[in-house]
Amino acid sequence: MREEFAYGRVSTESQNLDIQVDRFKLLGIKEENIFVDKDSSKNDDRKELQKLLSKLRKGDKVVFYDLTRLGRNLRYLLTLVDTFYEIGVDFQDLSNPFINTESTRTSEGELIFLIFGALGQYFRKSSNEKVKAGLEAARRRGKKGGRPSGPSERLKEVAPHVVVMHKNPDTSIKDIMKAFGISQGSVYKCFSIEKYDYKKQHKNVGNKNAAYKY
């Protein structure tokens, strides 16, 4: 019996897979047949992709959000397509409908596939080179890469209001977190920004509303 499978991928933990997964579900693909990786496409040993490949049988179909999600290394893309052909599996790029099993069997379709695969590889390498060049330029100027140190501008902005709110004996840390949409650690950072001695102001009663010391 023919089964339909889907493969999705994002490069980092911070990126969201929801758009890809929602698209797969709209096509009626069963949840257990959806495989997703949070990993760089340059890694050929992606765990979920390998699981998917092990389940494929002749006559099955694989869909992916776009070719760059399947991989941005042209050589590996060609290897995957050869694998699909060998097993007898159909495939479909949802973002570029003209990239599919039938089209890639024609000379024009194969050319389009190669162009898109080569472009994905080019943009990945180009992006990496620009990042490296930017970091090197920053190092030459005595700057270090990564997030800037110190509190964010938003925390500096809300810090006075956080302190005012905390001075209310009926207000808890959780109340402040909810009001400003910040973490517990950020609340204490706000106290530090304002040089506010919160320990003298309130008793520490865990998660319960704080009360003034008398």
Rank of each mutant, 00 (worst) to 15 (best):
R2E: 08
E4R: 08
Y7S: 12
G8N: 04
R9L: 15
S14T: 15
N16G: 01
F24Q: 08
L26E: 15
L27N: 09
G28E: 08
I29R: 10
K30R: 15
E32W: 07
F35W: 05
V36S: 14
K38W: 00
D39G: 00
K42R: 13
N43D: 09
D44T: 13
E48N: 14
L49P: 00
L52C: 05
L53M: 14
K55Y: 11
R57Q: 14
R57S: 15
K58Y: 04
D60A: 09
V62A: 13
V63E: 01
V63C: 13
D66Q: 13
L67I: 14
T68H: 10
R69S: 03
R69Q: 07
N73S: 12
L74P: 10
Y76C: 01
L77E: 05
T79R: 15
L80W: 10
V81S: 00
E86R: 11
I87N: 10
G88W: 13
F91C: 06
Q92N: 05
D93Y: 09
D93H: 09
L94S: 02
N96G: 00
N100C: 08
T101C: 04
T106M: 11
E110H: 14
F113E: 02
A118G: 10
A118H: 08
L119P: 00
L119S: 01
G120N: 03
F123E: 12
F123R: 04
R124S: 14
R124C: 02
N128K: 13
E129K: 05
K132E: 13
K132D: 08
A133T: 13
L135S: 04
A137N: 14
R139I: 02
R139D: 02
K143R: 15
G146S: 04
P148H: 04
P148D: 02
P151Y: 06
S152Y: 02
R154G: 01
V158Y: 03
P160F: 04
H161E: 11
V162E: 06
M165W: 00
H166Q: 05
N168E: 07
P169T: 12
I173S: 03
D175I: 14
A179R: 15
I182H: 04
I182F: 03
Q184H: 14
Q184G: 08
V187D: 00
Y188G: 04
Y198A: 14
K199G: 00
K199V: 08
H202W: 06
V205E: 01
N207S: 11
K208H: 05
K208I: 06
A211D: 10
A211I: 11
Y214E: 02
Y214A: 10
